[in-house]
């Protein structure tokens, strides 16, 4: 029985990861043909870094990811604090509202945001599809993830700690920065990492909100696949996969560590 379940697991993982393994292997393939193995090479990676189109997209992607992570973390943390201080029923309602965008199909989110931006552009001439719309879209879909990371830290916090700071003469805003923020910091950082990862990773929402002037990596890759595909794309995809994997591992390690710390405190 045990053996059977191991085999079963093995098959599942094979199905899940085989395409990625193929991708990674071919990114080192010294041949233009996709099916033939022509020996190991790093040429595709070299070429990648000389491809201006890709480098530009990478730079844009990083800018968007950093900005989206920072801004959505600030907004998401404030939202979490606000929701936390609501009373029971309203709080549950707001958390429900927060969770909907995460389960909502990305394509719906993407298209609806596009429609809104276009409508605003038509009406006011402001918000032409481009960098700003892409950034706003990324901030928007990142916020719920930040809220979701920060909320449990607020719940674990001794709820009288903030009051204790006020009691000792601290004004409300400094009290938040002096005692609440340090307490929820692990959640805030994990939230920021999540937001950064989600932003790097996103294709669907970016596709609808980037416009011709500001294409991020995933959108660029997609447009490249319309022309005869080069193994450069394999190399790029491998790098993106590696980066996102690394970030997710970091997020996971942080969460496990936090859980252990919680257990220790009890």
């Amino acid at each position: 029985m045990k053996l059977l379940s191991k085999i079963y697991n093995g098959i599942i993982f094979a199905f899940l990861y085989a395409p990625i393994v193929v991708l990674i292997v071919y990114s080192f393939n010294d041949s233009k043909h996709r099916v033939k193995w022509g020996g190991f090479t790093l040429d595709w990676y070299k070429e990648l870094f000389h491809n201006e189109l890709i480098m530009e997209a990478l730079w844009l992607t990083l800018q968007i990811a950093v900005l989206a992570a920072v801004i959505s973390t600030i907004i998401g943390t404030m939202a979490a604090v606000g929701i936390y201080s609501m009373n029971g029923r309203l709080r549950n309602l707001m958390m429900g509202v927060n969770n909907i965008p995460m389960v909502n199909p990305e394509i719906v989110t993407g298209i609806s945001m596009m429609l809104m931006f276009v409508a605003i552009y038509r009406a006011t001439g402001f918000l032409r599809p481009g960098f700003l719309t892409l950034l706003l879209a990324h901030i928007t879909f990142c916020i719920p993830y930040v809220v979701l990371q920060v909320m449990p830290k607020l719940r674990q916090m001794n709820k009288h700690m903030y009051e204790a700071a006020l009691d000792l003469g601290c004004r409300p805003v400094p009290a938040f920065f002096k005692v609440v923020l340090p307490e929820i910091m692990p959640g805030v950082i994990t939230g920021a990492l999540m937001a950064f990862t989600m932003s790097l990773d996103d294709f669907v929402i970016s596709y609808f909100n980037s416009g011709a002037s500001a294409q991020n990596l995933s959108v660029t890759i997609y447009s490249m696949t319309k022309k005869p595909i080069t193994p450069e794309i394999n190399a790029l995809s491998t790098l993106m996969f590696g980066t996102v994997l690394l970030l997710l591992i970091i997020v996971n390690i942080r969460q496990v560590r936090d859980l252990n710390k919680q257990k220790e405190r009890r």
Binding site: E163, A164, A165
Partner: peptide
């Protein structure tokens, strides 16, 4: 406070 509410950091 009932459960001290010290600042753990």
């Amino acid at each position: 406070f009932q459960r001290y509410a010290l600042f753990p950091h």
